[in-house]
Amino acid sequence: DVEEQIRRLEEVLKKNQPVTWNGTTYTDPNEIKKVIEELRKSM
């Protein structure tokens, strides 16, 4: 579920933690925001 994935990513973003997405680890909050944007567009 895309909305659930977005929620999880936003939680990680709030905690300022790195997130691994599709085999890539993002540590930059701006990169994580881009991933969230892409997910929103795909909905």
Rank of each mutant, 00 (worst) to 15 (best):
S42R: 11
K41C: 07
S42T: 14
T20G: 05
D28T: 05
E31Q: 07
P18I: 11
E38D: 12
T24N: 09
M43W: 04
E11H: 08
E38T: 10
R7L: 08
R40C: 04
I32R: 00
V2T: 11
E11D: 10
L9V: 03
V2D: 04
E31A: 08
L39A: 02
T27K: 04
T24M: 13
N22P: 05
Q5N: 08
S42I: 11
E11S: 06
D1R: 11
M43T: 08
D28G: 03
D28C: 03
G23W: 00
E37N: 08
V2I: 14
K41F: 06
Y26I: 14
Y26G: 01
K14L: 13
I32K: 00
N16D: 06
K34T: 08
K15S: 15
V2L: 12
D1V: 10
W21Q: 10
D28E: 08
N16M: 08
S42G: 09
R40M: 09
K15Q: 13
L9W: 03
K41D: 08
E31K: 04
E37T: 06
Y26F: 09
K14Y: 09
N30Y: 12
R8M: 15
K15V: 07
E38I: 11
D28A: 03
V19N: 03
E38S: 12
N22T: 02
Y26N: 01
W21P: 06
E31T: 04
I6H: 01
E4T: 10
L13W: 05
E37A: 12
Y26Q: 01
T24H: 13
T25V: 13
Q17I: 14
D1T: 13
P18M: 07
S42M: 14
G23C: 08
K34S: 08
E37G: 05
D28N: 05
I32E: 00
V35P: 00
N30V: 14
K14D: 10
E4L: 08
P18E: 15
I32T: 02
E11I: 07
E10W: 04
R7F: 04
R7V: 05
Q5K: 06
N16Q: 10
L9A: 02
K14C: 12
Y26K: 01
Y26T: 02
L39Q: 01
V2M: 12
V2Y: 07
E31M: 07
Q17H: 06
I32N: 00
P29H: 06
V2F: 10
I36V: 06
E4Q: 11
E4S: 09
T20D: 15
T27G: 04
N30W: 13
T27M: 07
G23L: 01
V19P: 09
E4C: 10
G23I: 00
Y26V: 04
N16F: 12
E4P: 03
I6D: 01
G23T: 01
R8I: 14
T20N: 15
V19C: 07
R8C: 14
M43V: 12
N30M: 14
E11L: 05
N22D: 14
G23Q: 02
N22I: 02
T20V: 15
Q5Y: 06
Q5R: 04
V35A: 03
V35C: 03
N16I: 02
I36L: 10
E31G: 03
E11G: 04
E4Y: 08
E3Q: 13
K15G: 07
V35Y: 03
T27P: 02
T20W: 15
P18N: 12
R8Q: 14
K14R: 14
I32Q: 00
L13T: 04
K41T: 10
L13A: 06
N22A: 05
E10D: 04
V35T: 02
T24E: 14
D28L: 03
V19G: 09
K15C: 11
N22R: 03
Q17P: 05
K33W: 09
Q5I: 15
M43A: 10
L39M: 07
L9R: 00
P29I: 06
L9T: 01
T25C: 08
W21T: 11
K15R: 11
R40K: 12
N16W: 12
L39F: 03
Q17R: 05
L13P: 00
L9G: 00
R7P: 01
N16K: 13
T25Y: 13
W21I: 15
D28F: 02
T24C: 12
I36Q: 01
E37M: 09
P29W: 05
N22Q: 12
E38L: 13
G23S: 02
K33E: 09
T27Y: 12
E10G: 03
R7K: 10
I36F: 03
N16Y: 03
N16V: 04
V2N: 05
V12P: 02
V12H: 15
I6R: 01
